[in-house]
Design a binder for these strands. Structure first.
Lengths: 145, 145
DNA sequence: GCTTGACCTCAAGTTGACTTGAAGTGGCAC
DNA sequence: GTGCCACTTCAAGTCAACTTGAGGTCAAGC
């Protein structure tokens, strides 16, 4: 059973050691032991980090991610709850597609003002109907690989 | 030209007055005047807020949103930059689809452990290859309509 | 055996996006 | 003309998710 030193895990996952320690502190991952002072992780930690990364992209808080996937990276919620999450994701995916289309459109549309373009106005109508959601203080960071 | 009292705009957009004032402070929207003390907004503010909401769903910071869409809700960036944004969005959309599929899968898969399921492992491989991105301190809130 | 360097702990700081609280203002209904 | 109440300003607080800094430890290589 080959364990990964925190430095190795950090390098392989792209997640800084400080973040790995933080994730462990909040119970998202577990270290299996120490080599001297240094934390040693099992190979499954890489999988967990991939899952965490995906969840963050989706805008889930670390709390929610921990709620959905247990320490071993397996789902802990009942089917219905998992499908509910997937449904919410689907809504978000549609909103992202709307925005992508809006961006592509304004990049190409020759109309004087975008507001005069029926296609753009239609996109925005969709946007305002698919109401946005917020939850207090859920930090999300994207960018910086 | 009918103006919207901040209270009306707040109600119609679902965005709290404190947030509208904040958006105005950071230059995302503009009020056209006052009725007594109360800010009055033009109807285009609703469009701007829809755009802001979409941008936030996509994980853009308010700074980035302001950068892409000017005060009038029209794009301010050159075509190439807009397409680049759209490309990044597309990557994110694919990650979200991966996560959605993973969730649906674990909800249905009868395998003893998900790690033993080839389909799940394949999903995770995709997840770890499509590397996640982060940018320092870009708060994002989802949920709470 | 001593240096080196990457780790350790713990507290405090940072960031973006808001919200909250105190103290004040002004249009509108009565 | 007076009370109400939703607004106003401004400073300070909050929250998640990390990062940073000070001071310390320890396995490995020389």
């Amino acid at each position: 059973m080959k364990l990964l030193d925190i430095g190795v895990l950090s390098e392989r996952s792209g997640v800084p050691p400080s973040t790995l320690r933080y994730y462990e502190e909040v119970g998202l991952i577990v270290s299996l032991g120490r080599h001297g002072l240094r934390r040693q992780y099992g190979p499954e930690a890489l999988t967990q980090l991939a899952l965490i990364s995906l969840g963050k992209t989706a805008g889930f808080s670390l709390d929610e991610i921990r709620g959905v996937f247990g320490r071993d990276g397996a789902a802990e919620l009942p089917r219905a709850a998992l499908h509910a999450r997937a449904d919410k994701l689907e809504v978000q995916i549609r909103r992202l597609i709307t925005l992508r289309d809006a961006l592509r459109h304004v990049a190409e549309c020759p109309a004087e003002s975008h507001m005069e373009c029926p296609k753009f106005r239609r996109l925005l109508r969709v946007a305002s109907h698919t109401r946005s959601q917020r939850r207090p203080g859920a930090g999300f960071r994207a960018d910086r690989g």
